[in-house]
Simulated assay, not measured.
Amino acid sequence: MKIALIGYGKMGHAIEEIALSRGHHIVCKIDKDNQKDFESEAFRNADVAIEFTTPTVAIQNYRRSFAADVPVVSGTTGWLKHLPEIKDACKNGHTFFYASNFSLGVNIFFALNRYLAKIMDQFPAYDIHMEEVHHIHKLDHPSGTALTLVNDILKEINRKDSWIEGKRDSDKQIEINAIRKDEVPGIHSVSYESEVDSITITHDAKNRKGFALGAVIAAEFTYGKKGFLTMQDMLPFLK
């Protein structure tokens, strides 16, 4: 498969290494200093583009990819206010795969989080709070992964109706503590606390390899498909 990389930082390098090891070809690498390559023949001939950049430039990268008729697998978070535009583009023949986190372990964690929330809805003595820790280069907060976790909880827990970063204003809110520290790949914890005990589930990423492998597998899944795709399409147990 011919893969274009949009964003060639640490994640881009990790994705390149894994893609090559799985027999794929990197035909184009686009970073902030070679934006004109969106119009290159090499980019237009890519089977799929894998995009890991920043929230401020992501939507423009998607538009340029669609203009070149190149499917996109995106791991950038913090741009979801533009999601209706992307879904409309997919209705008009384009292809887009989005995940707030490509790690297989994190997606298992998502399923565990939903299952636990269903149980804990029956036990109002337990309050809920979350914490996420990432490296200092991550611009959006809370993370996309944290938002997926908290929104899944809100679908199951009737005594909560919203989330807030930092100190809550109401007992109906779920507090999220977002920490930026050193080069931490990503730690996410969900805690239920009562007067007598606490229950905490945590996913602690050791490095970027799990995210990169998941992105490449998503690109392999996306190849030849049309429309808006998610991890639930690729991993049926998440539904």
Rank of each mutant, 00 (worst) to 15 (best):
T56N: 15
M11A: 08
G93I: 13
N151G: 06
E183Q: 14
E220V: 08
N45L: 12
S103D: 09
S162G: 10
R63G: 04
G23W: 12
G9V: 05
Q173H: 08
E51M: 14
V150C: 04
F109P: 01
E51F: 03
P71Y: 05
E39F: 14
K2M: 01
F123G: 00
L147I: 14
H188Q: 09
S143L: 02
Y115F: 14
D152W: 07
R180D: 04
S194Q: 11
D37V: 04
E220H: 08
L235D: 04
P236V: 08
A178P: 00
G210M: 03
I30T: 04
P142N: 01
A125L: 11
A68D: 06
K206D: 12
R114G: 12
N61E: 07
I187Q: 00
G7S: 06
E156F: 10
V72N: 00
Q60N: 13
I30H: 02
E16C: 01
K10F: 10
S65G: 13
V184F: 05
A218F: 03
Q122M: 09
F38S: 00
K209F: 09
S143M: 01
N113C: 15
K172W: 02
D127I: 09
F52P: 01
K209T: 11
K81C: 05
K160Q: 12
G12C: 05
V48M: 07
R168V: 15
E156C: 13
R44E: 10
S74Q: 01
N158H: 14
L213Q: 11
A215M: 12
D31W: 04
P71W: 03
V70K: 03
D88F: 12
N101P: 02
K239V: 07
Q173W: 07
G105T: 11
M231S: 07
N34A: 11
L5Y: 01
D233G: 06
F43V: 06
D152G: 15
I201G: 03
I6A: 01
K10V: 11
F97I: 01
F123D: 08
V73Y: 00
N151L: 10
D204N: 15
I153R: 00
